[in-house]
């Protein structure tokens, strides 16, 4: 369970006022428990792809489906982690994580158990009763990830989740996410403009063109990772030094560079 499929998906914004075509015939299949990252120049519509899987936006043409079922509305089977965290500042960490469980109508004892294990998973145990504003950005994003994971979603949608974090925190969170993916693998759609992050985290990386966004190429990272045994390295900088990593990164960089406008932006 947990496959995602884009079938000839177009998206036009403001169709009544002439319209801007944001996405052009997107075809993409993400298998169960696969981690796919989409990279692309800003404004290429990569976030729109994620928002359509989440059910926040509807395609103008084509179909987005999860487990073969057309997406029509947001729901807890597709948990989203937002770039700006989007925590509820008047709720404590525990209450933030609890909301989705209460919405599912679970009994208090089961909720407490699941919250405890989510807190443990994200190393948040000592902050359960803190309010979001008392936490650093990295900690807040841990809460948002815990809030998503606790729902046991089939699909995890991450929209530039580390984009608002400083460089060091970002690295820690990336390593954390790899650890999570091993402990508790999920189908993940990950949006980023950071090429290294995509190569480090994903099984496959989809590169998008400038607007109107199309999928330009899809690179298989997983086979290289397994062949070169990247996982023997604990630290992200060691992986990033490997020749196979550098090669993939450069390949994606070149592909993205072709998409820059005449002024290089």
């Amino acid at each position: 369970m947990g496959s995602i499929r884009f079938d000839k998906v177009d998206k036009v914004f403001g169709p009544l006022t002439g319209g801007v075509k944001a996405l052009d015939s997107i075809d993409l299949e993400i298998a169960e428990k696969e981690f796919v990252a989409i990279v692309g120049p800003s404004g290429c519509g990569k976030t729109t792809c994620l928002r359509m899987v989440a059910g926040f936006e509807a395609p103008s043409a084509g179909v987005v489906s999860v487990n073969g079922k057309k997406v029509t509305a947001p729901g807890p089977d597709r948990a989203v982690v937002f770039q700006q965290f989007a925590l509820f500042p008047w709720k404590t960490v525990r209450e933030n994580i609890d909301l989705g469980l209460r919405n599912k109508g679970l009994a208090k004892s089961e909720r407490d158990e699941r919250i405890a294990s989510a807190l443990r998973l994200m190393n948040l145990e000592s902050h359960a009763d803190a309010f979001p504003h008392q936490l650093s950005g990295g900690m807040q994003q841990r809460v948002a990830i815990a809030r998503a994971y606790v729902l046991d979603p089939e699909v995890l949608l991450m929209d530039e989740p580390f984009g608002a974090l400083d460089a060091q925190t970002r690295v820690v969170m990336q390593e954390e996410l790899v650890r999570l993916a091993r402990v508790n693998p999920r189908t993940v759609l990950f949006i980023t403009h950071a090429v290294e992050e995509a190569v480090y985290l994903a099984d496959r990386v989809a590169v998008m063109t400038r607007r109107p966004g199309r999928i330009k190429e899809i690179l298989d990272i997983r086979s290289v990772r397994e062949a070169e045994n990247w996982d023997r390295h604990q630290k992200i900088e060691d992986v990033m030094d490997l020749e196979s990593f550098v090669h993939l990164r450069t390949q994606i960089w070149k592909s993205l560079r072709e998409e820059k406008g005449p002024l290089g932006v």
């Binding site: 926040f56 948990a79 989007a86 509820f88 989705g100």
Partner: peptide, 13 residues
């Protein structure tokens, strides 16, 4: 903020 409401909807509120 829109993401705040989207987060609540995503959680099935």
């Amino acid at each position: 903020d829109r993401p705040m409401i989207e987060a609540a909807r995503m959680l099935g509120t």
